[in-house]
Write a protein that binds this DNA or RNA. Structure first.
Lengths: 233, 233
DNA sequence: TAGATTGTTAATCGATTAACAATC
DNA sequence: TAGATTGTTAATCGATTAACAATC
């Protein structure tokens, strides 16, 4: 429970998920800067580009170490590569797709994944019309073969794009067989043990919040027609 | 600026996005309860099912009104229908897909959307091999025709599944032509005016945070091998 | 050196949780 | 009525922002 009792400068305290969720965005902006041959940037400049506060950038980064230099700012290439390491993007990951429907197929066809080191090694489905097929070189297998495959091949992440009813039981199997993370597109909450890592992509939920926002505007405008402009009196 | 100055019991204060993001989840759980013929539920029971606090449920709901009854709890059907209204799901929305690639096509093929009243009315692309085709009955048009289409047909939401480079300029056009909301799958931040409603689905970012979590476990385990079990001494 | 900008502590803000009087 | 559970206020917790000494 000591705050500064350890010996590692890294990984002492649990990093909040608010911070972690921002890391890919930092990584993206730094990649863009790199592409534009910008070699250094201050938290102030970056904050303007990203529309957040410089304070937040410095706080976020200092969760992982001091990557900047007083009076100078941050070296773009260095910071980019450090965030790459923090996110674990400096190695290749093997993924399988469980459920060969629309979304599953779309992800297999998404060539950008491979460029980043996310390799989809197999697709599993129950549909006899899909089994035996190949999607961009990736074989579609019968789910019955999944146990054997996962136990004999390193599978880091399973992408779940299955019907709600099946998601939980298959997720449990996969974890038992050694899969480390679940990227869940099924429209259910997975009830896993504490230590199983899950990231949910609930597309319908996302669309619903957008619809809420759209309607909110419409309501606001009719209720408070005067709030828009107070510059003229 | 008065906190309780208005006459509407509804929509006075800006609801925090933390709350809004939870609404679809409430809606989903209430739908499940309905399907299982459960007619009433207390915040306590629901909190157990959803793995959040009863306090949070009551706070969240009371942003929109008092839907429960002391000593009884909440009527499932009523609460479900109220959240449906709050989210604006009691009407049909017209969507267009801009970018007929993998994800775009997958969304058109996702039949569940239509059941919920999300109707995709057109797909737009630049690829001559796609233009003129039909995906599950939905026509793929040349983007050149998009302005005319949007101006002559009610389009509530544009689903952006295009390359990064094009997303911003097309988004601006769409908003100008009258589209109310943008569901953005392009891997860029859209720079829109304040009042434009955007919901981002950054799949790569989502996967990256999952990879972070996976690696975090591995690191934690090697650094703190003793934290797992303190029940035996 | 003087100016710039970090890393970090302190202050503020907002969201979550706890508590309880109101009331069905 | 007594018990249950809400709606809501107060307390706590955590995340964001501000401030500034350290230092390049």
């Amino acid at each position: 429970m000591l705050l500064r009792g350890g010996f590692e400068m890294y990984n002492e305290r649990k990093i909040s998920s608010a911070v972690i969720n921002r890391l890919p965005r930092y990584y993206r902006y730094l990649g863009d800067l790199l592409e534009n041959d910008i070699t250094r940037i201050s938290s102030k400049e970056l904050s303007t580009k990203m529309n957040i506060t410089a304070s937040q950038i410095r706080q976020d980064l200092n969760n992982f170490g001091g990557f900047g230099q007083q009076g100078y700012g941050y070296n773009v290439e260095y910071l980019h590569s450090e965030i790459k390491k923090i996110l674990g993007l400096d190695r290749v990951y093997n993924l399988i797709v469980v459920g060969g429907g629309n979304i599953g197929q779309a992800l297999v066809n998404y060539t950008n994944f491979e460029k980043r080191g996310f390799v989809i090694t197999a697709v599993f489905d129950v549909n006899p019309r899909l089994i035996g097929m190949t999607i961009r070189g990736v074989a579609v297998y019968d789910v019955d073969y999944m146990k054997e495959f996962v136990e004999n091949n390193k599978v880091d992440v399973a992408i779940l794009t299955l019907p709600r009813s099946q998601a939980n039981s298959i997720a449990n199997d996969l974890v038992e067989w050694g899969v480390k993370g679940l990227w869940n597109f099924s429209h259910v909450d997975l009830n896993m043990q504490e230590d199983v890592k899950v990231e949910n992509v609930h597309l319908t939920d996302s669309l619903m919040t957008l619809l809420y926002k759209i309607n909110e505007v419409e309501t606001e405008e009719s209720v408070n027609p005067q709030t828009k402009d107070d510059s003229e009196e």
